[in-house]
């Protein structure tokens, strides 16, 4: 059984007054296996983020089903959704989404606190993890006091602190310079190597080249997919670029 199964997912937005309909996702089918690092690529407006939100149960699909470990997300009751999201998913966003009201350390602790962990337990989890991700020194600082790369590493740390089944990353390198981008991608690779399943949404070929499989989404459908196989990052980068050219050329 796949960890994540997306079956015939369709999402149509209709405007409130005119009733115009916009098809964001027409018919998406895909799976993610446990331990996989999958990247979803596509142009702006292709429906990548919509798909990610539907998978994370933050948006409803017009039709179709999402299964996580065999559980249909639709069947989860409204009042259990927040807990489900907290325990099953980790999130990394393009704009880091660290809260200004908390220090870096407290930002990381937040999911554990929301999950009613004891304070000692929390530090037993957070401090070694922060050490592993190289942000132990900035735990007491506030988000405005650290660099973009450090913020995103902290966000990654927060995303995996609950040991989620699936780490969802939406353009995690979109707001970073090339050095920080390299650091964050390396971090994602390390997390993947330690067994974390990752679903990355990006339009950056460089970011996607770190994944083990890349899905191309176009006009609301999964149009094509590439497996890394034994290719190096560089070789995989070239393959992705070629596919993108075909994808764009096919317009």
């Amino acid at each position: 059984m796949s960890l994540l199964e997306v079956k015939n997912v369709r999402k149509i937005y209709s405007t409130r007054f005119s009733g115009n309909k916009v098809v964001a996702l027409s018919d998406v089918n895909m799976t993610v296996e446990e331990g996989e690092f999958v990247a979803i690529m596509g142009e702006s407006g292709s429906g990548k983020t919509t798909l990610l939100n539907i998978i994370a149960a933050m948006d409803d699909a017009t039709s179709g089903d999402i299964f996580l470990n065999g559980t249909n997300i639709k069947d989860i009751k409204e009042h259990k959704l927040a807990e489900f999201r907290r325990r099953e998913f980790g999130f990394v966003f393009q704009e880091f989404n660290l809260l200004d009201t908390f220090s870096i350390g407290d930002n990381i602790r937040l999911p554990l606190v929301l999950d009613d962990h004891k304070s000692k337990e929390i530090d037993d989890i957070v401090i070694p993890l922060a050490g592993k991700l190289g942000i132990k020194e900035i735990l007491d600082k506030y988000p405005y006091e650290v660099s973009g790369g450090e913020k995103q590493r902290a966000a990654c740390c927060r995303a995996v602190v609950m040991k989620p089944k699936l780490l969802l990353a939406d353009e995690p390198t979109g707001s970073l310079d090339s050095k920080s981008t390299g650091e964050v991608l390396h971090l994602l690779e390390e997390l993947h190597a330690s067994g974390q399943t990752i679903l990355l949404v990006t339009h950056s070929v460089k970011a996607a080249s770190h994944a083990s499989r890349v899905l191309f989404i176009k006009d609301g459908e999964v149009y094509h997919q590439l497996y890394r196989g034994d290719l190096s990052n560089h070789e995989f980068y070239n393959r992705i670029s070629d596919s993108l050219q075909v994808l764009l050329g096919g317009r």
Binding site: H79, L99, L114, R158
Partner: peptide
């Protein structure tokens, strides 16, 4: 925006 992030991180409306 802060509450939106917290909601994504698993904070429910009741909280």
């Amino acid at each position: 925006s802060n509450y939106e992030v917290m909601r994504k991180l698993g904070m429910d409306d009741k909280l």
